[in-house]
Nucleic acid binder design. Sequence first.
RNA 1: GCCGCUUUAGCUCCAACAGGUAGAGCAAUUCCAUGGUAAGGAAAAGGUUGCUGGUUCGAGUCCAGCAAGCGGCACCA
Length: 643
Amino acid sequence: MMQITFKDGNVKSFDEGMSPEEIAGAIAPGLKKKAVAAYVNDELYDLNRPIYQDAKLDIITKDNQEALEVLNHSTAHLMAQAVKRLYPDAKFGVGPAIKDGFYYDIATEHTITDDDLPKIENMMRRIVKEQESMMREEISQAEALARFKDDPYKRELIEELPEGEIISIYTQGEFVDLCRGGHIGNTRHIKHFKLLSVAGAYWRGDSDREMLQRIYGTAWFNKEALEHHLKVLEDRKERDHRKLGKELKIFMLDKRAGQGLPIWLPNGYTIRRTLEDYVYNLERKNGYLHLSTPVLGTKELYQISGHFDHYQDDMFPLMKDKDETFVLRPMSCPHHMIVYNSELRSYRDLPLRYAEIVTQHRYEASGALSGLERVRAMTLTDSHIFARKDQIKTEVLNAYRLILQVIKDLDLTIDYIELALRDKTKGKFHDDDKLWDEAEATLKQLLDEENIDYHEVKGEAAFYGPKIDIQVRTAMDHVITMSTVQLDFLLPERFDLTYIGKDGEKHRPVVIHRGLISTWERLMSILLEQYKGAFPTWLAPTQMRLIAVNQEAHGDFTQNLHEQFIDLGFRSSIDLREEKLGYKIREAQTQKIPYQLVIGDNEVKNNTLTYRRYGQKEQTTVSVQAFIDMINNEIKHKTKHAE
RNA sequence: GCCGCUUUAGCUCCAACAGGUAGAGCAAUUCCAUGGUAAGGAAAAGGUUGCUGGUUCGAGUCCAGCAAGCGGCACCA
C-alpha cells in the first residue's frame, strides 16, 4: 500500500501501481470523469501512469487551464498518428500545445493541403473509436536513438538532451512518439477538435534549415466550447482591418502604387490627423519640441549611427549620385543627433525633448507584409530625449506616464511590460560591456522602485541599448509592441554628443528613444479591429449624418443645421439625395456613423433634432443646443460607446 | 525571403457541367416614385477571366513562369 496525500490535506491508502485515473475513480466517479491529468509530487503525470510510492496527488480536472493544454497536446499526437496512417513516409518535428490549440510539424513527400484536413480528421475519429491507450515508457538515450533511427528530427532532439537524462516515449497503438508528456491516457477522451490550417514552418525555427509542413488545430472538452472558439475565429474575420478598411474606405493598397505602400483614403486620413493632433498637443503640454527632418539622408549618417551595418538588408536600395550615396531613411534618430549637435549645449538646456511625426521606409520581407499591420512606408510619432544621467529616471518615467495616458485614451489594453535586454552570445549588439551593464541596471532599478511588473527578455534589446516595451493585446488576440522607451548610451558616443556641465567641462548626455503608438498604420489596424469600424465620436471620420424627411419642407433647416455643425468644427455630412428615408438611414448605419439625425416637421417647428446612435434603435429628440453640448462633451472626454 | 493556397465587372471565397468565346446581386448611370428610422420600381450599361507564354481545332477551365493577395514560418532599429 502507498499513502496518497490530496490537495486538501487528506491522506488515503491505495494499492501500489494505481494510476491517478484509478485513484480518482476510487474517490468519486464524477472526479474520474472530469480528470485529465495529475500532478504527482508536482510532476505532471498522465492519467494512466502508475504511482508506486507515497505521494502528493493533485488531480487536474477539465476546469484547469493546464487541462486544456494536456488535451491539445494529446490531440497533436492523435493527429500525428492519423497523418502517419495516411502518409506512411511522414517524419515528425515538434507538436506542442499552444494557446487555444496545437500544431504538429511534419515532413512528407505528400503536399498537405486544406482538402486533406477532413481526411485527417476522419482518421483521427477512427483512432478515437479504437480507444488507443497512450502508454508512457522511460528509456535510455541509446535506446531512444535506436527506436527513432529512421526519424532524423526526433534523433536530433534526442542527441541534444543532456547525458544521462531519462527520455520518455509514448505509444498509442502502432504510433510511438518522443515526448515529455503528460497525456490524457487514452484517445477515447478526445472528442471535440478541428483542424484549422496548413502552413510552412522552418525546422527549429531556423530559416537556414528545411521547411516542414505544419498543421494547426484546436481541441476542447465539449462541443459548446469548440463551437464557441470557432465562432470567435469567425468574429475575428469580421473584425479584420483589411476587410473593414475597404468597406469603410480607410485605406487602400494597389500593386501599381507598390507592394506594402498603403494609401490613406480621406476617411482614414481624417482619423489619422485627429490622432496626430491629439498626440502633438499632448507632447507640447509635456515639454516636447517638434521639428521636421527629411525622408532622405546620406549613407554616411547611418554608418555613423551603426544602423547601416545592422539593417542594410532591410533598407530600400541605395540611391547613388556621383559623389554621394543616399538612403531612404528607415528611422529618425540620426537626424535628431545632428540637431542636438548643431549648438553648444549647456547642462541647463537638458532635458531636451525632440519629437517628430516621421515618415520612414523599411524594405520589409515581402512575406511579412500584411494590410496596414506590416508595411514598407510608415509614419509615427518619434521622440528622442537628450538628458543628463541624473535626469534619466525622471525622463523615463515621464515618457512612461505619457504612454499610459495615450493607451488609456485609445482604450488599449496592456498585456505586459517587457524589459528587453542584451544577449551577449548574439552578435547583433554593440560590445561595450560597461555601457550595457549601466543602462540595464538603470532601467531595472527604475522599474523595481516604481513597482512596475515586467518580464525580462534576453536578446530583445535594440543594438544600441536596453528598452522597456509596452505590449498590448489586440482585439485579434495578438500581442504587439505598442510603445517603447529605450535607453541609449551608444549613439551619444557615436555622434560625440556633449554638453557643458556646471564644472565647465564637457559631458556626455544620454538619449532616451521613445516610441508612442507604434506607427499610425499599425495603430489604425488595431483601432479598426478594436472598434469593429464603429469609431467613437472624437475619432469618427463622419460624426453625424443629417437627413431631411422632405427636401422641400425641411431642406433649409437641415442645411442650416449642417453649416452650424461645420462651423463648430464637427465632421457633419448631409444626405440631399432624392431617395427614400429608409434608404438613407440604412446607408448611414452601414457606414457606422455615430449619429444619424432625421429632421421633419416637429424638429423644424421646435428647433430640435431627433438622433439615433449607431447600432441602437432608440430615437431621442433634443434641442439643437443640447445636442451640440453632448457632442462637444463626447469629443472632449473621448467617450466610447458600447458596440 | 521560404512553404502552401488563391486571383472572374467598382464590391461580394457569387455563377459558368467534364475545355466549346462569361452569369447574378449590390453599387454607379438614366427614368419613374419618394413624409418619420436598415434596401421602392424600371431600363440600359459594365469583362483582354491578374500578367506572359505553352498544350489544343478551341482555354476562365489544363501546363509553366511571373506578380499580387491570403495562412503560416523566418525577420521586425
